[in-house]
């Protein structure tokens, strides 16, 4: 629980962060809320030579309306998203899921960008980003680029953010007045999900699964089926397509796939209320 030695620098702007990333290379890690990174460092599972602290970049902490999108700055804390009237109105699933992350201490420190770039298949917010069809905005020395949430998550704890780049914002299409639900099966309230299901209904529906693959998982066939107006039974029949659930002390593959079906069915029931 004692981290290895590291250097610490503070970035004052996005440009400054990109400059510092270039300067410190592969051995550097960006520090946002720290709620994924610091525990790994304390266990010495991660030993960055330098931490580039981006928490003081004020320009990355915001929630704003932009036409058909709600755009959330990468350093916006979970608590701010959970409480935002704008997010509650247009993205109630995202607001709710932000309120399901960890415990209040975690939500007051952790950031949406930090959670997404950690790429943990067991985390809550990646599923919300996938189900709502979010787009990630990534900045690098050649400017900004955009990538869909689906393509953003590459593998276990691995995203498309390249060396020298920083996730700066997430663009969520509005899902105003559409049905939604987040079903999370846990043993303790503050645990990561054994299985979770994020369901977004409406014009651009999507369903994403938590802890059902080596990466945050968009249930593509099920999402398409919902889009075509399929019966719930038909959605359930394909909800586990392409999943690759882990086996651990809490669950076997069979049990996880069963839970995915049960929770999806419950999500539909909740969403229709």
């Amino acid at each position: 629980m004692i981290p290895a030695q590291f250097d610490y620098v503070e970035a004052t702007s996005v440009a400054d962060a990109i400059r510092l990333l270039a300067e410190h290379g592969d051995e550097a890690k960006l520090l946002a809320g720290g709620h994924s990174l610091i525990p790994l460092m304390k266990l010495r599972l991660v030993t960055p030579a330098t931490l580039i602290d981006v928490t003081h970049i004020k320009e990355l902490s915001y929630i704003k309306e932009d036409g058909n999108n709600i755009v959330i700055g990468a350093l916006t804390r979970h608590r701010d998203i959970e409480e935002s009237d704008l997010v509650k109105k247009h993205l109630p699933l995202v607001a709710h899921v932000a309120g399901e992350v960890g415990d209040p201490q975690v939500r007051n420190r952790g950031t949406i960008g930090g959670s997404l770039v950690h790429g943990d298949p067991a985390a809550d917010l990646p599923a919300a980003a996938l189900a709502t069809g979010a787009t990630m905005v990534i900045a690098g020395k050649n400017g900004e680029r955009r990538i869909s949430a689906q393509d953003f998550f590459v593998d276990f704890l691995e995203t498309d953010v390249q060396p020298g780049e920083i996730l700066v914002a997430i663009e969520f299409p509005k899902h105003t007045d559409a049905g939604w639900a987040y079903e999370k099966f846990v043993r303790r309230a503050m645990d990561y999900s054994i299985v979770g299901v994020a369901l977004q209904l409406g014009a651009k529906p999507g369903v994403a699964l938590v802890n059902m693959s080596n990466k945050p998982h968009l249930a593509v066939s099920a999402s398409q089926a919902i889009g075509k107006g399929a019966a719930i039974a038909d959605v359930l029949a394909v909800i586990n397509d392409d999943t690759n659930p882990p086996e651990d002390l809490n669950a076997t593959v069979e049990y996880r796939q069963h839970l995915a079906r049960v929770l999806t069915q419950r999500a539909f029931a909740t969403a229709s209320k």
Partner: peptide
């Protein structure tokens, strides 16, 4: 507190060794 057959603890952090909190 669980061990695998080789004697390695399988519940070596509070992620796996589940101490309930007030909310549970």
């Amino acid at each position: 507190m669980l061990y695998d057959p080789s004697g390695v603890p399988r519940t070596s952090t509070f992620m796996d060794y589940l101490v309930p909190a007030a909310s549970d």
